[in-house]
Simulated assay, not measured.
Amino acid sequence: MPDQRRLDLPGYPGGFDVVGNRVNRQFQLDVFGESLLLLAAAARHDRLDADGWHAALTAADTIAARHREPDAGIWELHDDRWAHSRLICAAGLHAIATQAPSCGSGRAAGWEALADRLVAETSADCLHPSGRWQRSPTQTGVDAALLMPAVRGALPADDPRTTATLRAVRTDLVQDHYVYRFRLDQRPLEDAEGAFLLCGFALALAEHQQHHNVKAMRWFERNRAACGPPGLYTEEFDVAQRQLRGNLPQAFVHALMLEAAATLAPRG
Rank of each mutant, 00 (worst) to 15 (best):
L57E: 14
L57R: 12
T58N: 13
A59R: 03
T62R: 13
T62S: 11
T62Q: 10
A64P: 08
A64S: 14
A64L: 07
A65N: 06
A65E: 06
A65F: 03
A65D: 09
R66M: 08
H67T: 07
H67Q: 09
H67M: 05
E69K: 13
P70L: 06
P70S: 07
P70W: 02
P70A: 11
D71Y: 00
D71H: 05
G73T: 05
G73F: 01
G73C: 03
G73P: 08
I74P: 00
W75Q: 08
W75L: 11
W75K: 12
E76P: 02
E76R: 01
E76Y: 06
E76N: 05
H78C: 12
D79Y: 15
D79V: 09
D79C: 10
D80N: 12
D80H: 06
W82P: 01
W82K: 05
W82M: 07
R86H: 04
R86K: 09
L87M: 08
C89S: 12
A90W: 00
A91S: 06
H94L: 07
A95G: 02
A95R: 02
I96F: 00
Q99Y: 04
Q99C: 15
Q99L: 09
A100I: 06
P101T: 03
C103A: 14
G104Y: 06
G104P: 08
G104T: 08
G104C: 06
G104E: 08
S105E: 15
S105T: 15
G106V: 14
G106A: 14
G106C: 13
G106S: 13
R107L: 15
R107H: 13
A108Q: 10
A109N: 14
A109R: 15
A109M: 11
G110V: 01
W111P: 07
E112S: 15
E112R: 15
E112N: 15
L114M: 11
L114V: 10
L114P: 08
A115T: 10
A115F: 06
L118Y: 00
V119E: 03
A120L: 05
A120N: 08
A120R: 14
